[in-house]
Design a protein around this nucleic acid. Structure first.
Length: 425
RNA sequence: GGAGAGAUGGCCGAGUGGUCGAAGGCGCACGCCUGGAAAGUGUGUAUACUCCAAAAGGGUAUCGAGGGUUCGAAUCCCUCUCUCUCCGCCA
């Protein structure tokens, strides 16, 4: 949620930002509506505050009069207070109506894109920030997509997942399960080396947490919901890990706060079916190591660059061809100010697969989370950032496809000590 | 799941209807004292919204959450949540 003060003081910038997100002129008027609602709320509050102050003063007077035994005078004032109280009810409700309307509208406004975000409407308009300069792996004729390789080498089984649970829940087996676990350990070890504190959070969160990181109300349909206990299965570790700092006033000395967490992620992915989601390309449950930072506003973009380097390093070590995209205004997530996507080349499918999304949310998320720090006497919102480092399922897909040989799948060197084998045959 | 006890500021802990955003202590910050430190001592030390051009200084709300009684609630009543103890169940 944007800060109201930002809209008040930087209205023109906000308008330009929404234009970059392809808001129509009509839709942009939401800003005026928000400011109007705020104006209404404020004037109602001033009146209410004055009313309550007067009631309080009179109530104190009544106390004194009663002590002095002047019951008649006290009763006279009581009726004044009662009528003040009647007015207060009305003022309170109009204040509530206005502030609810304001918040409702404010929630419909996405984050203002960073100035470097390219214009555009669709994924085709994303800017290639770092291209892959080296050659792609060349596969022997008859190379298989990863779902075929999975069957051949007994790495994972989607049909078995259907039996146990339903479509989109892969069952990893044998060396496939070991590969999965190896990648998790590798990613966590690398994150620890880069200074991220490891966190093993709950896989279910309450609605307050889901609201604070922005999954509610926007993405309610994307999360699995356990009605009986009013809990949501997390779609990403970002939710519980970032919420560690909900309502916390951070000591400035502790910036940047760096945390990493491995979790399974659960996504309903309602309405996405078809060939492009075959195999591990899109599943309901997958493993992911997430990196999260809470940073000082002045240095959050430096931290973002560090996160990009971290993710690049992982892909380099896994010897996977990848490129980095800077997302355009139309393709960026609702809450993000600047997002870079990492895509690995999936050689048999001959397509790029998104394996990481690294974003700076500036204060958009922290405004709902209330992650703040003291800047002198002022309390300011911190910046939050996060990125996948990395999402497992698609990495596995690319590793299988790119490294297939007639003898089997040759794993990159970095994984050998984790897996205990070099070849999946 | 059953029975009981409890929830107050960064922490501990007073406060059972009036001037209580809340005693006292600890912690923390700054000053005095000291050669330096400890001890001692003085001052300050919540958050949100809001008034004021800003600062200074006001106002309102907040004592787990929500509702109610009352002129007035941390204090009384109701609902919910959470924590602790005992029992039951159980990786």
């Amino acid at each position: 949620m944007l800060e109201l003060s930002f809209l008040k003081n930087n209205k023109e910038r906000a308008i330009q930002g929404l234009k970059k997100r392809n808001f129509s002129d009509e839709a942009i008027q939401v800003i005026d509506h928000i400011l109007e609602a705020d104006e209404t709320r404020r004037s109602a509050q001033v009146e209410l505050d004055n009313n309550l102050a007067e009631s309080k003063r009179l109530a104190g007077e009544i106390g004194n009069l009663i002590k002095q035994g002047k019951a008649v005078e006290a009763d006279a004032i009581k009726s004044t207070v009662s009528s003040l109280k009647e007015q207060a009810k009305d003022l309170e409700s109009s204040m509530k109506v206005a502030s609810e309307r304001m918040e409702e509208l404010l929630l419909t406004v996405p984050n203002i894109p960073h100035e470097s975000v390219p214009n555009g409407k669709t994924p085709e308009d994303n800017e290639v920030f770092q291209a892959w300069e080296k050659p792609f792996p060349t596969l022997a004729p008859g190379a298989l997509p990863h779902w075929e390789l999975a069957k051949k080498h007994n790495i994972f089984d989607l049909d078995l997942g259907v039996k146990l649970t339903g479509a989109g829940f892969p069952v990893f087996r044998g060396k496939g399960a070991r590969l999965e676990r190896s990648l998790i350990n590798f990613f966590l070890d690398e994150a620890a080396r880069a200074g991220y504190e490891e966190v093993a959070p709950p896989l279910m969160v309450n609605s307050a947490s889901a609201r604070a990181t922005g999954q509610l109300p926007d993405k309610e349909g994307q999360m699995y919901y356990v009605e009986r206990d009013d809990l949501y299965l997390i779609p990403t570790a970002e939710v519980p890990v970032t919420n560690i700092y909900r309502d916390v006033i951070v000591d400035e000395k502790d910036f940047p706060i760096k945390m990493t967490g491995y979790t399974q992620c659960f996504r309903r992915e309602a309405g996405s079916y078809g060939a492009h989601v075959r195999g591990l390309n899109r599943v309901h449950q997958f493993d992911k190591v997430e990196i999260v930072q809470i940073a000082h506003p002045e240095s959050s973009y430096i931290q973002l660059e560090g996160m990009l380097r971290h993710v690049s390093g992982l892909l380099d070590k896994l010897e996977l061809p990848y490129r980095i995209l800077k997302l355009c205004g139309g393709d960026m997530g609702f809450t993000s100010a600047l997002t870079f996507d990492f895509e690995v080349w999936s050689a048999a499918q001959e397509r790029w697969l998104e394996v990481s999304s690294v974003s700076n949310f500036e204060t958009y998320q922290s405004n709902r989370l209330k992650v703040r720090f003291k800047d002198g006497n002022k309390i300011r919102l911190a910046h939050t950032l996060n990125g996948s480092a990395l999402a497992l399922a698609r990495i596995v897909a690319a590793l299988l496809e790119n490294n297939q040989t007639p003898e089997g799948i040759r794993l990159p060197k970095i994984l050998h000590s984790y897996t205990g084998f070099e070849l999946i045959d």
